[in-house]
C-alpha cells in the first residue's frame, strides 16, 4: 500500500480500535480465559502441549472468529451510519484502498488481542513449554484475519448496521458452531454414502475447520485425525497456504469490488 491516505488510515483505525471499550472488554475476557487455561496447564502433570494447547485452540476457535467478525462488520456500514464515510471518502484515496487500510488497522488490533491472550497463557506455563503455546499465535492470527475479511465483506454488503451485526453473528453460528454439526448430520443422514475424503474436504474449506485440524495434527501428531475416525490425509502446505490466502483476500477483494461499483458510496 503506497497511498499516504491509506497509511494514515491504518494508524487511525488501530488507534480507534484499541480505544474501543468493546474491544478492550473482549480482549480482557480472552486474556482471562487464556490465563485460566495457562494456569490449568501449569497445574497438570502432563506437558502444556498436551493439556493447555488443545484447550487454548478450542477457546480461540470459538472466540477469535467472533471478535474478528465484530471488529469487521461495521467498517463501512458503521461509518456510513455515523456520517463519517463522506468525509473519509473525500480524501484522495480509492475505495478499495480504504477497505484494505481498515482491514489492516483492525487486523493489528486483533493481533494485539491474540498476542495478549496467547501470551498471557504462555507466561503462566513452565518456561520450557512456552514455545508450544506461542506457536499457536501465527495460525490464530490467520484464523482471525480470515474472519475479519468476511466481516469486512459483510460491512460493504449490508445497508444498515443492525443488518451487518445480524449477518456477522449468523456467519459465526454457521461456520463455527453449526458447520461441524451439519457435516455430522450429513454423515448420519447419508449413512456413510458420502466419503470421508469429501467430509474432510468440507472440513478443510471452512477456516475454522482448517485451523482446528491443522493445529490438532501439529499438537497431537499425524494420527490425531485417525483417532477421531477420519482416515484422511491433510492438505499439503501449498494447499493450506492457498486456502488461507483465499479466505484472507477473497472476501476483501469482493468487498472492494462491490464498494467500487457502488454509484453513491455514502448512500
Amino acid at each position: 500500500m503506497t497511498s499516504r491516505v491509506a497509511r494514515a488510515l491504518v494508524i487511525h483505525e488501530l488507534l480507534e480500535r484499541v480505544r474501543d471499550r468493546w474491544v478492550m472488554v473482549i480482549t480482557g475476557l480472552f486474556v482471562l480465559l487464556a490465563s485460566g487455561i495457562g494456569m490449568y496447564g501449569r497445574a497438570a502433570e502432563e506437558s502444556a502441549a498436551a493439556v493447555a494447547a488443545p484447550s487454548l485452540v478450542t477457546l480461540a476457535a470459538f472466540l477469535v472468529p467472533l471478535v474478528a467478525l465484530v471488529l469487521g462488520h461495521d467498517a463501512i456500514v458503521g461509518e456510513r451510519e455515523r456520517h463519517t464515510l463522506g468525509l473519509l471518502m473525500s480524501l484522495p484515496v480509492g475505495r478499495g484502498e480504504v477497505l484494505l487500510a481498515k482491514f489492516l488497522g483492525r487486523a493489528m488490533a486483533l493481533a494485539i488481542a491474540i498476542v495478549l491472550g496467547m501470551g498471557s497463557a504462555a507466561l503462566l506455563v513452565e518456561a520450557g513449554q512456552r514455545a508450544v503455546l506461542l506457536s499457536l499465535i501465527g495460525p490464530t492470527m490467520l484464523l482471525g484475519g480470515a474472519f475479519l475479511s468476511i466481516g469486512m465483506l459483510v460491512s460493504t454488503v449490508a445497508k444498515r448496521h443492525a443488518t451487518a451485526a445480524s449477518l456477522a453473528v449468523s456467519v459465526w453460528f454457521l461456520l463455527v458452531f453449526f458447520y461441524d454439526l451439519g457435516l455430522l448430520g450429513l454423515l448420519v443422514a447419508t449413512d456413510g454414502a458420502v466419503s470421508q475424503d469429501v467430509i474432510a474436504g468440507l472440513v478443510q474449506i471452512n477456516p475454522a475447520g482448517l485451523y482446528r485440524t491443522g493445529l490438532l495434527v501439529q499438537l497431537s501428531g499425524a494420527t490425531a485425525l485417525e483417532e477421531m475416525g477420519l482416515a484422511v490425509a491433510l492438505p499439503s502446505t501449498a494447499v493450506k497456504a492457498a486456502l488461507w490466502s483465499a479466505w484472507l483476500a477473497g472476501p476483501l477483494v469482493i468487498g472492494g469490488l462491490l464498494l467500487g461499483r457502488r454509484r453513491a458510496v455514502t448512500a
Partner: peptide
Amino acid sequence: EAVAFAENLSGLEVMRFFARA
C-alpha cells in the same frame, strides 16, 4: 452536513489523522 468523527479520539488526534492523510 452533520459532520461526525471517531468519538473516542481527541480533536487533536482526529486533526492529525487528516493532516497525515
